[in-house]
Write a protein that binds this DNA or RNA. Structure first.
Lengths: 223, 223
DNA sequence: GTCTATAATCCGATAGAC
DNA sequence: GTCTATCGGATTATAGAC
């Protein structure tokens, strides 16, 4: 009652979380709020505006999960907790995870507003910070934190997306193990030690220039 | 003329590729084909049926890209070529990449048909096969090919998704480098060698049971 | 601020003539 | 197989009274 706008926004999140993007209409929302549809336009410009606020709330919730991970005592534990937090967020709020990563056109947007891009960039920065302090403390190999953060983020995001789309037949408990295992594999490395030693010498051979004779990142692995 | 059904399907792919999922309507498609909307229903049951055929075509195109990678002479090169093929497919046909990985509800499906799941599984199997032969030839560390294939697939998919959504400010040329670099990092491993040695001893400490005292995959990295 | 009423579109899908 | 005509429904958004 005190703030009808917030009440509507809360209902909008609920509606989205249970009905999804397709099921999110101004009429249904009005019904859930307990008013008629035109009343919504006194508080929000249009459907697009409302959906963007929902995305904002999704970021808030993710933020609360990530923030919790910062209470772990060591960089390594904070890193680990961050990975777990991302997992928990996606499993407990799959719709939020989905809308945060939806293509702009699915939201009916011509382009993503800068404020939203900034929030996404903040998530990336969180990963980068975890990586950086792990490098400083010797848990992670020293490297470009920005690049390493992206590698880790992309992996986690990809794995969770595949799972949430039901492409992995594993039940949730098995997926949790799989998720941790996959992280462990990345940290340990997939190549053989000979390959790793070899790789360090021509890591930049992927320029795509014709004169590199098609040599790619894995080539020469078995000299 | 010879096969109107294929002509419609071709136009459907074109329409989707330029208009996206939101812009894909039976009316627009009919206009593009050069007939009226009801005529489409002589060849396809409904919009859902048509969209599924488009997804099928997307899989066909991806398949042609992956197939090309098999012509490389060594397992390591085939692995590398597979990664590049996945990249090229996503960059050259971003809409196909998008629709292949769209959530079922975005396609207006209650559930994904088994035939489509099978095609997705085939992509996964392709990665697994590349991994397996790399393990056999000593380029990749011996491990569960299914798990390692998933790790690699998730990473590639995640990275490409983030890029196609415009979250990485890098231009395409820079992204190509970034993509290869990220693969290289995963193959080499992100952890320090001390961490890697330590990890092998309690890789299974992520069971989530309370008695593991919260020990997670990264803990104990600096003994 | 909220209502009733309605405009203005767009959609998927069908009936029946040809 | 394709057409015209149309049904039946959904949606976003607005106008104007209260």
């Amino acid at each position: 009652m005190t703030d009808q706008r917030e009440h509507i926004l809360g209902c909008a999140c609920d509606l989205y979380l249970e009905a999804g993007l397709e099921g999110f209409s101004m009429r249904k929302l009005a019904q859930q709020v307990g008013v008629t549809a035109p009343a919504l336009y006194r508080h929000f410009e249009n459907r697009e505006d409302l959906l963007l606020q929902v995305v904002g709330e999704a970021h808030n919730v993710l933020g609360s999960y990530l923030y919790r991970a910062l209470s772990a005592p060591t960089p390594g534990q904070r890193f680990s907790a961050a990975g777990e937090a991302y997992l928990e967020f996606a499993l407990e709020h799959p719709r939020y995870f989905q809308i945060m990563h939806a293509f702009a056109e699915h939201l009916g947007l011509s382009e993503v507003p800068a404020e939203l891009e900034e929030r996404t960039a903040a998530v990336k920065r969180f990963w980068d910070d975890r990586v950086r302090e792990c490098m400083d403390s010797g848990v992670l190999r020293r490297d470009d934190p920005d690049r390493v953060g992206l590698t880790l983020w992309a992996h986690a995001y990809g794995l969770l997306s595949l799972y949430l789309r039901g492409l992995l037949d594993a039940p949730e408990s098995a997926f949790r193990v799989l998720y941790s295992d996959s992280f462990a594999r990345i940290l340990r490395g997939l190549g053989t030690s000979e390959y790793g030693a070899e790789l360090d010498h021509h890591l930049l051979s992927h320029s795509g220039e014709p004169d590199s004779s098609g040599i790619s990142v894995l080539e020469g692995g078995t000299p």
